[in-house]
Design a protein around this nucleic acid. Structure first.
Length: 462
DNA sequence: CCAGATTGCAACCTCCAACC
DNA sequence: GGTTGGAGGTTGCAATCTGG
């Protein structure tokens, strides 16, 4: 089992019981990821044996750079998986009940799972439902005894990008994507893309089953038949305090996904279940505007809009008789069916009441659709993050003349100037948002107007 | 004063997600 | 499958510095 720790004390606590602990120290997460990936490859090679060509490819793909090994030992052997790291004192009171050897089977069968490659600290001690369990694929009544799940997720998964549903950018697998900038060769890029695509597909497949299992687990009574405490809780380690707290749905789903294998097709959620997923999503994100996607909840949401459009246009759709009721349910949740600037086809009572473009065939301009634009929202958030950095810079240095750099704040400042020029020269369209942003930059003292070309060496201090 | 080195910057490129 | 816009990366120009 591969983990990343941010404090040596935590690391040591997990390694103590192993005879051959293997651990390294890295300067950054990317190097740690690379090391873990390489470890995975080595383990596989031990199992099957690689040809010399494969070895060469592997070296090319994984590269030798970056791993700064300051400390090294070995814990890893093929039997290590049968041992469980001793829980820390903070978690020992909620130690899980082990229900058998299913987990090891999962690890072996699922050796390519992203969960085994990402350096996140997960200790799934849940007895996942056996794949040959007829109840799992049939009636979906999954038999769990009473137990408490321990959910330990490192910062890597919790911040800054929590995975939920189809939003690729929030996918933990994008750790690989972010490493694209350090690609070294075409082979590396190709291998990296294949890996990423595979893992993404896997995670998407797991999405639906994970929801299913999580809800099923939660609905179990801790003491079956006794009417005891209903619902199994997912717990998360609060790293700062060193104590277990109840995990959010999002964390629970992330955890559940990490321990599940592929989603059987007959476990696809029903429409009503999808609606409850959407309800959960809104509870966490404050909106029903799930980003569009090819699969999962995002795809489902997009489909609802498509069906709605067809329905209001009078096109023939299957399940038309239920459509009104479904729309009513979605609207009750605050779901938006149209995008800004899109033609409104239906003109339902809400739109009619507004009287501002709700008539059929008109162009929607109401701000009611503004939250729809996820991309815009995300971009604004990013901009604000850099702007905050700029404020800090000004506080520290007294001006906003951030030195040029190829990335980070220096690059961002340069980009703002570039954006200003593009808009000025008519290469890009000016938005209301940019007008506000550029005004704020100028208020800070930033000179967005381009000066003469060229620069110069740093001036000597007077 | 001058040639070469250093540096800042604008313009352009590639890549990607999101959207249509 | 095309478009858009943000991000990092690259390139070339020209101002400025350095040392002889």
């Amino acid at each position: 089992r591969y983990c990343v720790f941010f404090r040596w004390a935590e690391c040591r606590a997990q390694l103590e019981d192993y005879d051959k602990a293997e651990f390294d120290v890295f300067d950054n997460l990317d190097d740690a990821s690379r090391y873990i990936l390489k470890g995975e490859e080595e383990r596989r090679r031990l199992k099957r044996g690689l040809s010399p060509e494969e070895k060469q490819n592997e070296n090319d793909i994984l590269g030798g750079s970056g791993c700064k090994r300051k400390v090294q030992g070995t814990i890893h052997d093929e039997n290590a998986g049968n041992k469980r790291a001793r829980p820390t004192s903070a978690t020992s009171s909620t130690a899980p009940v082990d229900h058998g050897g299913d987990q090891e089977q999962h690890e072996d069968a699922d050796g390519d799972a992203l969960s085994s490659k990402l350096p996140h600290l997960v200790q799934p001690s849940l007895s996942a439902p056996a794949s040959n369990d007829p109840d799992l694929t049939g009636t979906r009544t999954i038999e769990y005894s009473g137990f408490v799940l321990r959910l330990l997720i490192s910062d890597i998964l919790l911040t800054p990008r929590l995975y939920f549903g189809p939003n690729y950018d929030e996918h933990p697998g994008n750790m690989f994507h972010r490493r694209q900038s350090c690609q070294r060769s075409r082979e590396y890029t190709k291998a990296f893309r294949e890996l990423r695509d595979d893992e993404e597909a896997r995670w998407r497949r797991q999405d639906e089953l994970a929801w299913e299992v999580m809800n099923a687990v939660r609905s179990q009574q801790t003491t079956p038949g006794t009417g005891g405490d209903a619902g199994v809780k997912f717990m998360r380690l609060e790293e700062d305090k060193g104590e277990l707290v109840e995990a959010t749905d999002l964390e629970a789903i992330t955890f559940t996904k990490s321990i599940l294998s592929d989603c059987p097709k007959n476990l696809r959620p029903t429409w009503d279940e999808r609606l409850s997923h959407l309800t959960e999503y809104k509870k966490y994100h404050g909106t029903t505007n799930v980003p569009n996607a090819r699969t999962g909840l995002g795809r489902w949401v997009a489909k609802q809009r498509e069906i709605s459009r067809k329905f209001h246009k009078g096109e023939k759709i299957s399940g038309a008789e239920w459509q009104k009721e479904r729309e009513r349910k979605l609207k009750r949740l605050g779901f938006y069916f149209f995008r800004e600037g899109e033609r409104v086809g239906g003109g339902d009572e809400r739109e009619a009441a507004r009287g501002d473009g709700g008539t059929p065939g008109s162009i929607r301009t109401s701000p009611i659709d503004v939250p729809f634009n996820h991309r815009q929202t995300k971009e604004i958030k990013k901009w604000e993050a850099f702007y905050t950095q700029l404020l800090a810079y000004k506080k520290r240095w007294g001006d906003v003349d951030v030195p040029y750099s190829s990335r980070g704040l220096g690059k961002w400042v340069q980009k703002q100037k570039e954006r200003y020029r593009d808009i000025r020269d008519g290469k890009k369209s000016e938005t209301e948002i940019w007008r506000g942003q550029s005004a704020r930059l100028q208020e800070l003292g930033m000179d967005l107007v381009p000066k003469r070309s060229g620069g110069g060496r740093e001036k000597k201090a007077v």
